[in-house]
């Protein structure tokens, strides 16, 4: 089995990272949480992250800009955007710029779990170990 996938969660609302961390760790991912997108980007440049979960509207840098930088730096990385202000235009822009998926807040943890699992699968990695359990619906 390949190395554990690493996920970065970026949201200036601390609750999001706090709540998502256990959800993702239970799937076997290594998780790092950031409230500041600029710091997150700096960390992205030095570390190896396969999946980024980011808010769109943040102080400092918006999620679309983050998406563009991440994709420029690591085209293979899957970026999942979440937003409390969903609109078809932003969704279209996000998808056009290569976002893997676009989720509206508030969302159920399970919804995000499924999306991250799909992202992991599409990376061609082995599915994380718990996905066998998760297939039982």
């Amino acid at each position: 089995m390949s190395e554990t996938l690493r996920v970065m969660v970026v949201d200036d609302e601390p609750i999001v990272g706090r709540r998502l961390r256990p959800v993702l760790e239970k799937l076997g991912f290594e998780v790092e949480v950031f409230e500041d997108p600029v710091l997150a980007l700096a960390r992205f440049a030095e570390g190896r992250f396969e999946i980024v979960v980011s808010d769109i509207r943040m102080r400092g840098m918006d999620g679309i800009a983050l998406l563009e930088r991440v994709r420029a730096h690591a085209p293979r990385a899957k970026v999942i955007l979440i937003t409390g202000h969903p609109s078809p235009e932003v969704a279209a822009e996000a998808m056009a710029k290569g976002a893997f998926e676009y989720i509206a807040k508030p969302f159920k943890t399970d919804a995000l779990r499924r999306v991250v699992e799909r992202a992991a699968l599409s990376l061609g990695e082995m599915p994380p170990p718990s996905s066998s359990g998760s297939s039982e619906e």
Binding site: V16, R19, L20, P106, F107, T109
Partner: peptide, 12 residues
């Protein structure tokens, strides 16, 4: 949403 199944933020 209060129930706890959701992740909600201040924006909501």
């Amino acid at each position: 949403k209060q129930g706890g199944g959701y992740i909600l933020d201040r924006q909501y």
